[in-house]
Design a protein around this nucleic acid. Structure first.
Lengths: 200, 200
DNA sequence: AAGGTAATGGACTGATCGGTCCAGAACCTA
DNA sequence: TAGGTTCTGGACCGATCAGTCCATTACCTT
């Protein structure tokens, strides 16, 4: 190597991700991506390949980060509180930096997954990871007592992982957070009626 | 009028809907629509306006039909069975005519709703109609005894209406029907443990 | 049967799509 | 400081996009 890159790969992927997440794959043009990342056509193509390659790179970076964050958050709190916080943060993302972009995996489950096997298998892995994390957390909660329900942890996890894209879609469509909050409260009923929080 | 149309408006809208539902708005081109409907460029533009107008017309026809079907199905069975059947038919749509296209309202909640107020308000109305139908059905079930839970019908309905796009997204992403079935079974727990079916 | 009106087929437009390519600028090595 | 290598800017490509327009065809009215 003689001349170093003038851009930071991670930053470029993050900028690209922002566009893909907000507008979707089809509605995002290479011109959009060039403008957002600031690099030139040649550099972008040389570094990442075509539009789809860039998309996959950005998506994979996002998936890795979100999966790590998921496990970190679920493991760092009492089980019941962790699950409640996980869903509540989705609802609260309405008030995010700007209008929410939703979850990339959920968005792509709708846009590209039906027509693209590579995307589909990634999304299957994502949902599986979420389900596994839920199951593990529920089992822990049952052991430590923060989750009163005696129902099978795997069965509850399978419902929660379906509820996840449900909340994501509702948020992206602009649903009223208060209503989503009510839905979440009802969902958490399944974990058992025990006093969930110090605040209660 | 001197010369009659050579095409049936409802049929054209149905063909267009099929494309929009399967591929989304952006990924569907006017050429695709012309090929699928069989009519000429002039006819299509003269009859429906531009791509977006055609989309809205097809979408509205779909919404009207699905809303009517929703109410019909929910009202024509014992409440608990009706709700279970409603969700199960989503899961079973995996084995539909060809690979499932998912629910148009859910798909568009992801693709266009965040950027298009006209779409957003339609989708809000759709979800509201679903929630209302659920609430009414749950209340009926509590009165007639097929739903054992004494929890507020509105609260349960608000959860079910969130679960709805969750199932739709999972189906569209190609999730395993058996797993979705397990999730549904867990969800129905909220309606109360009573013997739901003659088959049980 | 003739005339007028509306639907149709298809050529055409400018814009934009994703992608390629090359000349020149920038940088590290020696 | 000179040489070689890589990165960068931007012109350029064919394809396709949504949309327009007009000549022709087909039909109903009288």
């Amino acid at each position: 190597m003689v001349r170093p890159q003038e851009f930071n790969t991670a930053e470029v992927l993050d900028k690209a991700l922002g566009l893909f997440r907000r507008k979707g794959f089809e509605a995002t043009s290479m011109s959009d991506l060039l403008a957002a990342t600031g690099l030139s056509r040649s550099s972008l193509y040389a570094a990442f390949g075509g539009k789809r390659d860039l998309f996959l790179a950005a998506f994979d970076a996002y998936r890795a980060e979100r999966t790590a964050e998921l496990n970190r958050n679920l493991d760092s709190r009492p089980a019941r509180e962790a699950i409640e916080t996980f869903f509540r943060s989705i609802i609260d993302s309405v008030h995010g930096p700007e209008s929410s972009c939703g979850c990339m995996s959920t968005n792509q489950a709708v846009e590209l997954a039906p027509h693209d096997a590579a995307i589909r298998s990634r999304i299957a892995a994502d949902f599986q990871a979420i389900e596994d994390a839920f199951r593990r957390t529920i089992a822990r909660g049952q052991a430590e007592g923060s989750i009163a329900s005696a129902r099978d942890a795997g069965a509850i996890a399978r419902l929660l992982v379906v509820a996840f894209p449900g909340f994501q879609v509702m948020v992206r469509a602009g649903a009223d957070p208060a209503r989503l909050d009510a839905a979440l409260k009802e969902l958490l009923t399944l974990l058992g009626e025990g006093p969930p929080h110090p605040s209660a």
